[in-house]
Design a protein around this nucleic acid. Structure first.
Lengths: 233, 233
DNA sequence: TAGTGGTCTAGACCACTTA
DNA sequence: AAGTGGTCTAGACCACTAC
């Protein structure tokens, strides 16, 4: 931003991306070798490499040793979503956040949860249902299962005051994550807790986390009508 | 994989991530300086830096000049979704893909589309409706608007044979993307084309792309019941 | 087997930011 | 003002793979 004399790798990334966008390098084309690009741009090969690494990660180009770098012909649309802690999400919009524990009980693991965890072994799990509110209106109904083998501490937590969501996020880092989005029709407890008519279309976010191969928690967050998830890249 | 003697930056990344997961470095903790870590691990500072850059990108740590590196206390759940070309998605599942053009016409830009594009200027747009099928069953109903100022070539394309989706992906790289997910109740043409009962909950993927600030296309993809989007990290 | 990307190192200097 | 991350460079060697 201050008129550097040297090119940073982000500059190089942007320059090459620009050339791809304006078709200087068209889809399928082979790009010059890193070395030649570096020469042409007046920087070190390392710098070009770092830029290329990024373009490759994004999916714009494909790199192969000896094969060189090619502009991808069928770029996938890749979008990164941040799923924040619900309290934050609400508060950042300037709304008032509230949380209600609905139920909490240790139960044997149902088959559906075992399937999500991907473990054949039934374990003791804590089943927690809770409601997140925004400006006193139902916002997200959360149906969560927590593996008490992996996370025995959760049994000591007063879930009436602390959302399991937040406690886990702060205390149980995970190494593997699975996220799914889909739509369901409101019915039964979903409709009841979210105070919507049965049949209403609701977006569901289902998340499961593991540490190593050991399951931590799986949660189904049923959002209020109108809820959107968005990402900008 | 071949028992290198030297540490690669991915090794360093994994090592530090492991330390964070096992609480050697707990949330909120300050990590050693890059230099010290490098010394301890027996590699160059550059290598540690590259690893840290990645952990920072993922959202596991936060770095500040002079402030040092800290383990984030409230990690966001971050998931990257690849939204493939529909044909690919279907074929990769081993199903038969088919495509039907429903309508295609140049129309003045409706307000809703201008809002999505974020442009105050009405432009000429091509309005395309199409249906993607998987094993002869409706899969995705796509309602698309293409800016003919940015993309005049689209008018020459035979959309009865080629899906606008694919043509655009192959021929119109974008520099900016907006993606939204939400749920709607099937009704009207959505219900009709997808052959579902009115009221059924459907997942909608809405995508808008720009090149620079110029809009290219915006598309609302209404998916068949049961459709899921998933990501694993 | 030669060419190309992948990575490391060591040293240097810059830029931000907090103490 | 000093400390810490951010980045560049130049050179070296490695590893994969297309030719």
């Amino acid at each position: 931003m201050t008129g550097q004399s040297r090119l940073s790798w982000t500059d190089v990334r942007d320059e090459i991306q620009a050339r791809i966008l304006d078709r200087t390098y068209a889809p399928g084309d082979k790009l010059p070798r890193d070395n030649d690009l570096a020469l042409g741009l007046g920087c070190a090969r390392t710098t070009v490499h770092r830029a290329m690494q990024e373009l490759s990660r994004i999916g714009l180009v494909e790199r192969k040793r000896k094969g060189g770098t090619h502009v991808r012909t069928d770029p996938v649309t890749r979008a990164t979503f941040d799923i924040p802690i619900t309290r934050r999400e609400v508060e950042q919009r300037g709304s008032k956040y509230a949380y209600q524990l609905i139920s909490s009980a240790v139960e044997p693991t149902p088959g559906s949860v075992m399937a999500r965890f991907g473990t054949p072994h039934p374990a003791e799990v804590l089943h927690v249902k809770a409601l997140h509110l925004s400006d006193n209106r139902p916002y997200i109904f959360e149906d969560r299962w927590i593996d008490t083998t992996t996370t025995p501490d959760i049994l000591e937590v007063d879930l009436a005051c602390n959302s399991a969501n937040e406690w886990l996020v702060r205390n149980k880092p995970y190494s593997k994550l699975d996220v799914r989005f889909f739509a369901i029709n409101a019915q039964g407890e979903n409709a009841e807790h979210l105070s919507v008519a049965a049949g209403e279309a609701l977006l569901v976010i289902e998340r499961t986390t593991w540490i190593g191969t050991a399951p931590i928690t799986t949660v189904r967050s049923v959002t209020a009508p109108g809820y959107q998830l968005s990402a900008q890249n």
